[in-house]
Design a protein around this nucleic acid. Structure first.
Lengths: 213, 213
DNA sequence: CGATAGTAGATAGCACCACTATCCACACCT
DNA sequence: AGGTGTGGATAGTGGTGCTATCTACTATCG
């Protein structure tokens, strides 16, 4: 198909598709002439993934490129490392520094250790969590992190469920794509669900308690 | 204290503080002269909250203002509605339209119903979740949403834990602030933890499975 | 065949966001 | 008295995510 059809089927304007091509989010079409190229269903699929990551996941364009690059390069890695490669590409680079950060980072390491998780030291999510801990500390809410064991257990249950789904997909490429979708869209979904749970829980708590202060 | 000290103690540049004042994120200091004002610990606290929401939570400035406004106005509401007001202010306005969205929205309503949650129809998180469902559907991963019951259960457990923490804080203002912090920073924390859980789970799954495929 | 529409590729422009810089008249401090 | 700081106003900056325009060419249709 040509670019106009790709645009119509993906509901992405032609100039935007060209922009994604320039930015390396979308691979070039197969050249059929000096100023002609044709695109296939792979392009359409990739384009829909891009839009989902941007619109639903809220990822910036540069991060989307990183994630897609990770999908494409991870296929050469051994299977048990592929997902790590993709997972790492998703994390946002929290620039941690200072004494309080190092302390928070140690707390994170201890938490991971305690739950017996296999997460390598260079994993960016450790630093990300440490960043949150620093923030909580500065707000005088470091106590909240004591409740994180519940978060770990919940996350573990969810992760098993996600992996269960993903591992049933056929083919490497599909699994990798599934991991990205499960991670990013799953995160957006869980965030919305969690906020609803907050509303429900507070309604429950304060209704039975009455309107006492 | 004066603005220089506020800047030093919060580690936010003076021009940025002035910007937040202009944007209504931070209330004006108490005037002591035509071009003099003094700020107190409340301002410092508020400023730290602003930075945490922006840096850790990744919220845009406009959303931070909404959330802070919600904290300030919710204090006049009955307790069981306050948290709803705050919770609503956090959601991002997903502009849902079209047939597929309506269908997704109905699925969401059914899920909420099934779990017996009290979440009012106008709650923006319903639409947000519906938006994710639409995205999943377009990517051919609508099956993933069948696993969301696990998400609901996990979210419920986490919400109970969060509310347990928050309800022990003294004073209305502190509770409202705690809800915001718990929601936003808690979300960032959980996202990091969940991603680590993914890495751990995939390492586990594919290691025991071996390098098949 | 020619008119019209579409195409790849390049360059420039635009709106928004989150600051950042500069300037002013005045105030504080020593 | 004078150097630094202040509130308030206005303008500028760098980054992001497109969007518009242009050129030289190609496809398609009557």
């Amino acid at each position: 198909m040509r670019i106009a059809e790709l645009s119509r089927r993906s509901d992405v304007p032609v100039p935007t598709i060209k922009y994604y091509l320039r930015e390396g989010l979308l691979p070039a079409g197969e050249r059929t002439g000096p100023n002609q190229a044709s695109y296939d269903d792979g392009h359409l699929r990739r384009l829909r993934l891009i839009r989902a990551l941007i619109d639903v996941g809220g990822l910036p364009v540069a991060k989307v490129r990183d994630v897609l690059d990770a999908i494409d390069t991870a296929a050469d890695e051994p299977l048990h490392e592929m997902l790590g490669v993709v997972a790492k590409s998703i994390g946002r680079t929290t620039s941690g520094e200072g004494e309080s950060f190092a302390e928070a980072r140690a707390t994170v390491d201890e938490m991971v250790q305690r739950h017996g998780w296999h997460v390598d030291q260079g994993n960016p999510h450790r630093d990300e969590l440490a960043g949150v801990l620093v923030g909580l500390d500065q707000l005088g809410h470091s106590e909240l992190s004591k409740h994180f064991d519940v978060y770990f257990d919940a996350a573990q249950r969810i992760a098993r469920e996600d992996l269960d789904y993903v591992s049933k997909l056929g083919g490497l490429e599909a699994i990798l794509e599934g991991v990205v979708i499960g991670t990013i869209l799953g995160e957006a979904a869980f965030a919305a669900i969690r906020r609803m749970a907050h509303v429900d829980a507070s309604a429950r708590l304060f209704r039975e308690r009455g309107l006492t202060q």
